[in-house]
């Protein structure tokens, strides 16, 4: 198992290299001079030169990349241009709300999807099934930020039972302020999950071992959960993993709808301050986060699938 994970990690190295290259190139695809873009049109030549030197922009590009890489290896993501502190400490300060939101929303999405898929798969080709199968078609078309604003309108403004934004100060208020954002993200993810999960469940229900379990006289509910759901969970975990990139992208947007002090909000704020190192650092962290989830998904699938072991 350890050797297997080690092999997977080594296979990830070229992708990691590519990611750093993309993030590094962000500064260099900017039209014109990034120093000029940052300082504005009234900047003096000396200040431009000083900033270019400070950013290392006066070095040849391959050398700049090597300097950037050697910084990354030491865990140095650069200095924020606006806040003046290290990008690493800024990211560390915003990481927890994002991870918390990711965890809550994926749990919620997985839970709702399993319930809906179970209902749809046990009553195939009925009205309930057709209704559940229509969810992806509608859900696909709903912008997450709009769902978020509607939720604020209903539960925050109209009923006033949940906070309209912010993160609160203690664990209870954290949870309260994460409910609506998690629901908004789940609305975006559930449609994708239900479709695949239902198909996986139907396939599992057609298997011989399910027929055998039924013939043994096991209760239908235990056949469904112990046999069908367990075997359908492999494709389901896979789909959840593939969706994670989408999920992380949604947190970025939804944090800005609900003013949650996470990475997504930090990134958008940095964009408006033209704070290049912070934007680069967050893009890098998001990509690495996604890669870790991909890896965990594959490992989880192999653990669930006893045939592979």
């Amino acid at each position: 198992m350890v050797r297997y994970i080690g092999r997977r990690l080594i296979a990830l190295l070229p992708i990691l290299f590519g990611i750093t290259l993309v993030v590094f190139m962000l500064v260099h695809i900017t039209p014109g001079d990034p120093a000029r873009t940052y300082l504005g049109i009234h900047a003096t030549d000396e200040s431009l030169k000083a900033l270019r030197h400070a950013w290392g922009l006066d070095q040849p590009i391959p050398l700049q990349y090597l300097i950037y890489l050697s910084g990354l290896v030491r865990g140095d993501l650069g200095q924020s241009l606006y806040y003046g502190t290290s990008v690493r400490s800024l990211i560390a300060g915003s990481l927890v709300p994002t991870l918390f939101l990711l965890l809550l929303s994926s749990l919620l999405a997985a839970f709702v999807s399993v319930i809906l898929a179970l209902i749809a798969a046990t009553k195939p080709e009925t009205l309930v099934d057709h209704t559940i199968r229509a969810i992806p078609t509608v859900g696909l078309a709903m912008p997450t930020f709009w769902v978020g604003t509607i939720l604020i309108l209903i539960f925050g403004v109209h009923f006033g039972i949940l906070p309209v934004g912010g993160y609160g100060t203690d664990i209870k208020s954290h949870l309260e302020s994460l409910i609506l954002p998690s629901v908004a993200i789940a609305v975006a993810i559930v449609p994708v999950l239900v479709r695949s999960l239902r198909a996986a469940l139907l396939e599992a229900l057609n298997m011989d071992y399910v027929a055998f379990a039924r013939a043994k006289g096991l209760r239908p509910s235990s056949v469904l959960i112990r046999y069908a759901l367990r075997n359908a969970s492999i494709p389901a975990v896979n789909i959840l993993g593939v969706t994670i990139g989408f999920l992380v992208g949604q947190t970025l947007v939804i944090e800005n709808v609900f003013a949650l002090p996470g990475l997504g909000r930090l990134m958008i704020q940095a964009i408006f301050k033209r704070d290049f190192p912070v934007v680069q650092g967050i893009a890098l962290v998001f990509a690495i986060l996604t890669m870790i989830v991909f890896l965990l998904t594959d490992v989880a699938c192999d653990l669930l699938d006893t045939r592979a072991a």
Binding site: I15, G18, I19, L21, V22, V23, L26, V27, I29, T30, P31, T37, I244, G245, F246, L247, V248, G249, Q250, L252, V253, M267, I268, I271, V279, Q280, I282, A283, F286, A287, T290, M291, F294
Partner: peptide, 19 residues
Amino acid sequence: VVVAFPVYVLIIALVFALG
């Protein structure tokens, strides 16, 4: 490499960089 970035993260970062 492209897929490793969450969709919106890369689109937003690129739009930011390109102006």
